[in-house]
Design a protein around this nucleic acid. Structure first.
Ligand SMILES: [Zn+2]
Ligand SMILES: [Zn+2]
Ligand SMILES: [Zn+2]
Ligand SMILES: [Zn+2]
Lengths: 137, 137
DNA sequence: TCTTGACCCTGTAGCAGCTACAGGGTGCAT
DNA sequence: ATGCACCCTGTAGCTGCTACAGGGTCAAGA
C-alpha cells in the first residue's frame, strides 16, 4: 500500500502543498522516493497525518500537535502531560471566546445606535472618530 | 503642533514600527519631513490614527478600516454602507464565536473522558488517532 | 568641544500556517 | 508522438504586525 502525495492528500483531506509544508517543518518525516523521485507514503504516514489533521481541527497549534505526537509515542508514560496540554488549549479557546463576546457586545451597541441618516451624523463613525474633533470654526 | 513619530505613538498607544507599517501600506499618508528627515505629524494624522486604532480594537481588518476611512470622508453619503460593513463584521465575529464554542465543546468532552492512566490508554490521544489503528497482530 | 543618550531613519527578515505560483520532470494512454 | 494528470523544487505571497541591523540627528551635560 503505497500512496503518492496526491492520494495521501485525498485520503486525509489535506492539500498536497500542506503535506510538503509539514515535511519541511519536520512534522512529517521525509518518506522514501520512487524511481521517478515521487514521495511514497505508507500506512504509518497516513495515520500520523490523520492524527495531525484531527488535532488541527480541534484548534491545537502545530507546536502543540508536535508535542502530542511525541507524547503519544511514549506509551508507558502517565497521560497527565497530555491532559495539561489539552486543558491549556481549552483555556485558550475560552479566552478567545470571552474576547470575542466583548467585541460582539461593543459592535452590537454601535450598530444599534445608528439611526440611518448620512455619513455626517453616523453614530458608528462618530464612535470611532476622536472625541470632539470639530474645531469651533 | 508637530509630532514626531514617537510622540504620535505615545498619543495613540501605537508602536512606532506599526505607524511606519501603516504608512508603508498606505493607510496613513506620508507626512512632511523635518530638516533632519524626521516625520512631522499634525492633528489630522493624530485623528486618523486614533480612528484606525479604535476600529482595530473593534476587530475590523485593515481593509475594512481603509473602507471605513474612505466612507467617512464622504459626509453627504447615506450611511448604509457603513452599517453594512459593521454588520458584516459582527456576523464574522459571531461565526468565530460559534466555531470556538463547537471547539470548546469537543475539547471539553475529550478532556472529561480521560481517566488519568497511561498514555497507552489515554482517551484524548485515542480520539485523535485514526480509528482501529492496531493491526490484528 | 566632545560625548553621551534618546530619539529618528531605511531596509530586511521573522512570526503562524498555510497557499500559490513558475518552471521543470514522470508516467500512462491514445 | 503527444497529451494529460500528476509529481518535483524553490520561492514568494497572505495578515498584521514586530524586531532587528546599521546607520543619522539633536539637545544636554562635562
Ligand atoms: Zn445607519
Ligand atoms: Zn450610520
Ligand atoms: Zn488523563
Ligand atoms: Zn489521558
Amino acid at each position: 500500500m503505497e500512496l503518492k502525495i496526491g492520494a495521501l492528500g485525498r485520503a486525509t483531506d489535506t492539500n498536497v502543498e500542506t503535506i510538503r509544508y509539514y515535511e519541511r517543518i519536520g512534522l512529517l518525516s521525509k518518506p522514501p522516493r520512487t524511481g521517478g523521485n515521487y514521495r511514497a507514503y505508507g500506512a504509518p504516514d497516513l495515520n500520523r497525518l490523520s492524527f495531525i489533521r484531527r488535532a488541527r481541527d480541534l484548534g491545537f497549534s502545530l507546536d502543540q500537535v508536535r508535542a502530542l505526537l511525541e507524547l503519544s509515542d511514549d506509551k508507558a508514560r502517565d497521560c497527565a502531560t497530555v491532559d495539561e496540554l489539552a486543558r491549556d488549549h481549552l483555556a485558550e479557546v475560552e479566552r478567545k471566546i470571552a474576547d470575542l463576546e466583548a467585541l460582539k457586545a461593543a459592535l452590537s451597541d454601535l450598530i444599534a445606535s445608528c439611526c440611518g441618516g448620512t455619513v455626517a451624523d453616523c453614530r458608528i463613525l462618530e464612535a470611532l472618530a476622536p472625541s470632539t474633533t470639530s474645531p469651533a470654526a
